[in-house]
C-alpha cells in the first residue's frame, strides 16, 4: 500500500468560525495505481492533495506514505519526503522563470545533494521522457504552455518518485494540448508510476483507472474502470 489515510480531518479557523475542509477521509491507493480526485471547487480536493503531497499536515488523523507516518513529521522531514517520494505537477506549471528548462528539471536534485554531472544526466533523461531534449536550454517564457507543462512533468519525474501528484495539470492548456499531456501521463502509468490527478473536468478524470469523488470535504463515491 503506497498511500493510506485514516480519518483525516483538516479544520481551518476563519475568525470564530471553524471550517471543516476535510472530514474523516480514509483512502487507500496502491503502488502503480492511476487515480483521479474529482470534485467541484471548494469540495476539499485541493486540501486533500496538499495533505497527500506532504505540503500540509492534517488537523486530526493519520497519513502513511510508503508505510511511513508522515502526518507527525516536522517541516524539514516533510521537505525530505516531498523531495524523495513526490513529484508535483501544477496547473500554473510553477517553473522558475529565470532558469532554463534543464535547470528547472534539476531543481529537486539540487536539494538532495546530487552531484552536478549526475544531475545534468538525469535532467537530460527526464526531458527525453517528455520529448523535450531539444528545448533544454530554453527558458520558460520561450516555451509554449504544453512545453512548459512537459518541463514540469520532467521535473516531477527526475527524482524517480513514488508518487506523481498533478493538480489540474490541463487547467491552463487548450483541449488538444491537454490531451497530449494526458497521453504522457498514460505512458508514465504504463511504465509503472503511481499517479494521482486532481481535476474538476470529467473527461480528464476518465483517463484514470479510478475516480474518487469528493464533496463537502468527504469522499462521496468511487468509480473503478473494469479491465
Amino acid at each position: 500500500m503506497l498511500i493510506r489515510t485514516q480519518d483525516l480531518w483538516k479544520i481551518y479557523e476563519m475568525g470564530r468560525e471553524k471550517v471543516n475542509a476535510l472530514r474523516e477521509v480514509s483512502l487507500e491507493i496502491e503502488k502503480g495505481e492511476y487515480a483521479a480526485i474529482m470534485g467541484p471547487s471548494g469540495s476539499g480536493k485541493s486540501t486533500l492533495m496538499n495533505l497527500i503531497g506532504c505540503l500540509d499536515t492534517p488537523t486530526k488523523g493519520d497519513y502513511y506514505l510508503n508505510d511511513k507516518l508522515v502526518s507527525q513529521m516536522n517541516d524539514d522531514e516533510l521537505a525530505r519526503i516531498r523531495n524523495k517520494e513526490i513529484g508535483f505537477v501544477f496547473q500554473t506549471f510553477n517553473l522558475l522563470a529565470r532558469a532554463t528548462a534543464a535547470h528547472n528539471v534539476e531543481l529537486p536534485l539540487v536539494y538532495n545533494g546530487t552531484e552536478s554531472e549526475v544531475r545534468k544526466r538525469k535532467a537530460r533523461e527526464a526531458l527525453k521522457m517528455v520529448d523535450l531534449e531539444d528545448r533544454a536550454t530554453h527558458k520558460p517564457n520561450e516555451l509554449s504552455g504544453g512545453e512548459r507543462q512537459r518541463v514540469a512533468l520532467a521535473r516531477a519525474l527526475v527524482n524517480n518518485p513514488a508518487l506523481i501528484l498533478a493538480d489540474e495539470p490541463t487547467g491552463n492548456l487548450d483541449t488538444k494540448t491537454g490531451h497530449e499531456i494526458m497521453n504522457i501521463f498514460k505512458k508514465l502509468h504504463r511504465q509503472g508510476n503511481t499517479l494521482i490527478i486532481v481535476t474538476h473536468e470529467h473527461d480528464i478524470a476518465t483517463y484514470a483507472d479510478r475516480i474518487i469523488y469528493i464533496r463537502d470535504g468527504a469522499i462521496e463515491k468511487e468509480e473503478r474502470k473494469k479491465n
Binding site: G53, D76, A79, R80, R82, N83, N94, Y111, R155
Partner: peptide, 16 residues
C-alpha cells in the same frame, strides 16, 4: 514568494 514555494515543494528545507 512563488519561487520560494516551488523550491519548497520540490524539497528545499528551511535552511536551504
Amino acid at each position: 514568494t512563488r519561487e520560494i514555494g516551488i523550491r519548497k515543494a520540490v524539497g528545499a528545507r528551511k535552511r536551504n
